[in-house]
Design a binder for these strands. Sequence first.
DNA 1: TCGCACATGTAACGTGTTACATGATTAG
DNA 2: CTAATCATGTAACACGTTACATGTGCGA
Lengths: 182, 182
Amino acid sequence: MNVRTICLAILHDGKATGYEIRKLSVEGEFAYFVDASYGSIYPALAKLEADGLVTSHVEPQDGKPAKKVYAITSAGRRAFIQSLYEPLEKDEFRSQFLLFARYASELPASLVEERLCGRLASLKRGLDKMSEIAECEDRAEDKWIIGYGISCLTAAHTYLQTHMNELVALARQDEATSEAAE
Amino acid sequence: MNVRTICLAILHDGKATGYEIRKLSVEGEFAYFVDASYGSIYPALAKLEADGLVTSHVEPQDGKPAKKVYAITSAGRRAFIQSLYEPLEKDEFRSQFLLFARYASELPASLVEERLCGRLASLKRGLDKMSEIAECEDRAEDKWIIGYGISCLTAAHTYLQTHMNELVALARQDEATSEAAE
DNA sequence: TCGCACATGTAACGTGTTACATGATTAG
DNA sequence: CTAATCATGTAACACGTTACATGTGCGA
């Protein structure tokens, strides 16, 4: 799933500027799909316009720099929906946290515990934010997606809560020992 | 998390060839972290050797091409463990499936249902494979990680099972109608 | 005999990030 | 007065993938 597709998806919902698209892809619901930077969005929009899938018009603003508002064309709409008919790419998941967990026995228990607690807290933050978004969200599909996310994160949170001790127990007691020895 | 780190992680467990490392990163437990190709692994190993973090020796085999077995050095071991002390990168998750779900109302119900069933089946396959691996696995950390994975996938599976109808209901009835009209 | 598994490696290519350039306004 | 937000865009760079080159032995 490339930046091009995300731009089309966002523009399918309504007009937006490159600046806004980046925000949505880093914060909004689209963050579950991608996390794009200006350096990829602006060229993608230019390419999309050259291909006739979007159009743009410049809106001057006073006080703020002029903005270039993009809108999807019917060809763009068709191309985007068409792309959803094609076989789905498999989801991808990369977790440095899980790699860390795999080497718990090589690390001090204090560090392992700290990281597990940190993860627990960040999972909690993510869940709270999702619940918050879910409330003011009115698109049924978005609610469905958020429900999916909440289910997965809740499972992860519960697992961590009930199993974190096991991982801490596998870690090295070095530091606790050396501290106790002083 | 780059290919370099994954190579060190795998070699931390024991000797391996580039060929084996790729297999592990596509199939084995390491698939949760990365999914690397030869084109990235071989250059990474060469670089790692130049940096003194791994060593290699060629083992001729009869019938099969000679293999180049890599082993981690103590400097490599240190560098790898040291990297686990640094702040963890946040997990990343990209799902084309969720993007598809977001536009369910623009797609025919038959397609939405098909994709949901397919996803349900692939989730099931993933869970079965994990349970299988978990059984013959004896490293406690790997069991812990697999347990984490199973929890998350189970939650996703359950959510799909109980909520797939809602998404199908949002989809277009076009095709069913046109079929009924014929 | 066809293709697969074993095994290593390179070159071209694609895609995205980081850092930079530019510049006004507003809140602390 | 400093930093942040708004706003667009480019160039250099990093990182990874795909396809290719090369070659043997084994099973269907």
